[in-house]
Design a protein around this nucleic acid. Sequence first.
DNA 1: GTGAAAGCGCTAACAG
DNA 2: CTGTTAGCGCTTTCAC
Lengths: 344, 344
Amino acid sequence: MPLTLEDIALKSGVSRSTVSRVVNGQPNVRESVRQRVLQVIRETGFHPNTAARMLASQRSWMIGLVLPRSVSSFFTDPYFPRLTQGIAQACNQNNYTLGLFLIETKEDEEKIYPRVSRKSLLDGVLLQSGEIGEQLIDHLVDTEFPVVIIGRPPHPVDLSYIDVDNVSAACNAVNHLVRLGYQRIATIAGMANHTESIDRVEGYKKALLADGREIDANLIAEGDFTENGGYRAMRQLLPLQPDAIFAASDVMALGALRAVREAGLRVPEDVAIVGFDDLPFASTSPVPLTTVRQPIVNFGYKAVEILIDLIENGARPPRQVIMGTELIIRESCGSRSKGIPIEG
Amino acid sequence: MPLTLEDIALKSGVSRSTVSRVVNGQPNVRESVRQRVLQVIRETGFHPNTAARMLASQRSWMIGLVLPRSVSSFFTDPYFPRLTQGIAQACNQNNYTLGLFLIETKEDEEKIYPRVSRKSLLDGVLLQSGEIGEQLIDHLVDTEFPVVIIGRPPHPVDLSYIDVDNVSAACNAVNHLVRLGYQRIATIAGMANHTESIDRVEGYKKALLADGREIDANLIAEGDFTENGGYRAMRQLLPLQPDAIFAASDVMALGALRAVREAGLRVPEDVAIVGFDDLPFASTSPVPLTTVRQPIVNFGYKAVEILIDLIENGARPPRQVIMGTELIIRESCGSRSKGIPIEG
DNA sequence: GTGAAAGCGCTAACAG
DNA sequence: CTGTTAGCGCTTTCAC
């Protein structure tokens, strides 16, 4: 029923190859012929069969986005939808189709693995860097299969990845609190087995040490990137009477804020809070959040760009792209009330 | 380089057809032969080429999720990630691959159209019902292509869809406010050209009329399913001194809550608020939200189920599946303080 | 129960 | 510039 190249060839009085050339925008076709063929294509509404094309050309024009099971916050943290947006946008623009692979169970992982690691379905994959010990990375690493990891991989691997400089970003944020004169600065970290958590804690420590302070391990509470996780971590910190909190995500900062207020304390007067991400709600939260802005959409965009470069040009060696962040000052850190100037 | 059926056939001393039968779990193979072939497959790590399979069988085992441009709240409303979760889960379980199509520009729409409307790439699509006037639906309607619309379509079409009974759900919610004795009940609607908004407003009116009240058009404010939209709508309503608000989404309810508190009023003492969705944050919002719970994940799950039935059994006529909702009572409607019993 | 053979619709040399 | 000719790797009759 659906039309084939052959049909179009017949109707335009040329061969199948010529039609193929026209469809693929190849140069070696006489202009008048090209026009005639295009005309027929338009009239008939012909579209080449994707599967046949994939098979013959060994290219699918499709990439996969893999979100490992460990990234359970996909549904609770607006970070991921935004990332996905950037990725989808870039795919559209480059005429790639995006396949979404959410891994939730061990079973999923096994089912999905062959689909995301062979050229027969995907031209390449974007892998959200998950837990340390993530199997998928190791499987992928010695394949020739094009991969870009989103986020610094747990251990050094010979793969391209894209990340922000979490250490510096966190360090800057905490340093801001230091300069504002806070004495007991605590942090709510993400899950301990995720690189971005590790890096942000490191930045936290670095800023404190740079000011000649000591690290109090009790002031480092582990959240899990959820609102509730932030809340629980804050409840745990409260008895230690911190006067400032650096939370590794805006969502956790919100949970912390809830806990602080529930305890009858004020933000930022009694406890200052700084978040991470600068998601839309950061500015509309009960107390507008001072936070580290990540270029999330661009991040996804860039990831696709690198992947496509890998697919189409096989660019080697692997690239590491680090994107910039920016500290956004709002109410929750109290710099306004303290009247301390903001650095440019 | 990668293995083919032929390779496996050679190594197991059978024909390509037999290997194909084994791979596809067909019955007509002697058990001993089946075992031998399976053994070779395991040893070699063979996986059939997806493109070749698609081409020969005219099936891709892939479905698309299409989010039209009008669904701009994809990135601001946690509703969509949850829906996507349910869909992805169901796809995994049924061995389908999920393609994600986010349409943002007119250009995207044109590029994507051929990809989502032909059997050559997808076996079927899930279309998030968008704006009234959405082109895609009309294009899809007279194709034989399997489609399930998520949400009631703007105008009656001969397609399967899945939805909740928004009218009843809203009516129940507002009725709850009525029974609590609120006198000036306002509503914050979604975008006027979306069916779920229309239906929820209708439910709102229905509850009021059922109580013998009149509809005051000024008490119906239009939001846009964002937090800011809810905030703005509430600011517009505030001068009219409503004593209760029914918001068409939790996100908007949150915006309304912010506006109310900013005006120095208390929830629920001065203004009661009821939301819609029961997203995770509804229970942790500054005032826990009374809201209509939608079975979002199940919703996505069910949508896939219907689509697969359509693909595999060509089930006709189109099915309309309506899922149930539940009113979740928390603090924001004030029923606790008013001591009014909650219906079973 | 198993194998041979004919495609699925397209791309990509290779001639001309 | 254009047509001919092989496949891409698998599914699926149709014989045996």
